[in-house]
Design a protein around this nucleic acid. Structure first.
Lengths: 232, 232
DNA sequence: CGTCGTGCGTTCCTATAGGATTTGGACATG
DNA sequence: CATGTCCAAATCCTATAGGAACGCACGACG
């Protein structure tokens, strides 16, 4: 059976109570983002349960929730697999979707930005600048995290729960692509400058310019990735 | 225990094999759409299991999948509840989100429409025209279904898996609003004309006009619903 | 009469057991 | 060698049991 002294029974109240399935969910998400679970690999329910030292029930629940993120796919009676690597086609579709949603987010966020939000946004860009950009994944990590955080913050500041939900369906895929799309961070300086441009447009309170800068950024991301041209 | 002669053991192969959790998922979805589960009501796992004559395990999995649709909300250790009724604010946000996504879908669908897709779209509009529009819900039903199908088809024909996923995060909410937003189908004739206009723009192969007609449609939907002005 | 404590029922959550299904390989056959 | 069959292990799927927390009614007490 599982370890009878679970780590959740700390003294006092946990700030927000969580159940095992939540922990499993986050563990799996982290493994997926870390690349510890490679695209196409099978994710066995029983196997994960053994690995995490819990029963299959919470694993099953966590995977059911993960399915909608697109990170894993399920086939009835056959189990879950990590979503396959991005094809060139997938990537083009993803960028098309981003071009539809993110500029709108930027425009709205510009009008509705709170002081705290603006501060967080500046911090994200700052983190992008200072993040190490070595060759190993551990060094990528904080850079990628700051990148995702920047876009996520803008979506959140648009202050529209549905647009935020729509962005989040993309966000996970974007992050997944950053990891497995084949491109490293070849042109970090340019990318940072583009983020900076979006930030400045927002700071200056010009919604149309913010949207335009976001279009510019996403298009250039697409351009750089396409140029690097993975195999097919 | 559950009925030992499940209805799934038909002779021959089911086209696509399903497991109990899938049936539970669809049953719950139908109940939510039918209004049999009212907004704010608790959805007990054990209770649903008894009602559907299955064990709690598949119900738990189905609810986990339903959560991301926004139809139900979960609080750890407290269970699931049907999402509360739309506020005026929620509605405004939903329409803003639709205005960001659906015109893009219409523009792309116009360029990429397949003959079969166009046929299905025409059928949806036809169904809208012929659907009964009585006062009881049973008569609403086919009208609402055709309405949702029209928009869903356009999203699908945009031929972009991510935009489709993004739309689907809205689609359920839109359908839910149609049921619980407080407005009946007061101006069906106008709504049908607007759908017809979108269809004609697509048929004529004019992407910009298709997008414009979709903007027009959604804005007028918003206008009609806002005019009806529910309590708040 | 109002307040507090206690007990019971309900519900969520996790673990476990066992049936059903798939998969992979050994083995026999054309 | 290619192909089909059969078996065993792994896996998925569902049911069931029981612990823990929560809500609520009921009764005791100030």
């Amino acid at each position: 059976m599982a370890d009878p002294s679970p780590s959740v029974v700390r003294a006092g109240y946990p700030v927000s109570r969580q159940v095992l399935a939540d922990h499993v969910y986050e563990a799996l998400l982290e493994w997926l983002m870390d690349g510890r679970l490679e695209p196409g690999a099978a994710v066995s329910i029983d196997g994960m349960a053994r690995e995490l030292d819990v029963s299959p029930t919470p694993v099953r629940e966590a995977l059911a929730r993960l399915e909608h993120t697109g990170m894993v796919r399920r086939v009835a009676l056959k189990g879950y697999r990590v979503a396959p690597v991005f094809t060139r086609e997938d990537f083009a579709e993803l960028m098309e979707a981003r071009l539809s949603i993110e500029p709108v987010n930027a425009r709205l966020a510009c009008s509705r930005m709170t002081p705290d939000g603006l501060e967080a946004l500046k911090q994200a860009v700052e983190d992008l600048k200072t993040a190490p950009r070595g060759g190993t994944f551990a060094e990528y990590r904080s850079y990628l995290e700051a990148d995702e955080r920047f876009h996520q913050l803008i979506a959140a500041q648009a202050n529209n729960q549905f647009l935020l939900a729509a962005y989040n369906t993309l966000g996970g895929q974007i992050q997944r692509f950053r990891l497995f799309g084949g491109v490293g961070i070849t042109d970090a300086e340019q990318a940072i400058a583009e983020h900076q441009a979006v930030l400045e447009a927002i700071t200056s309170g010009d919604p149309e310019k913010a949207a335009a800068m976001m279009v510019d950024h996403v298009e250039k991301v697409r351009g750089r990735a396409m140029a690097d041209a993975p195999e097919d």
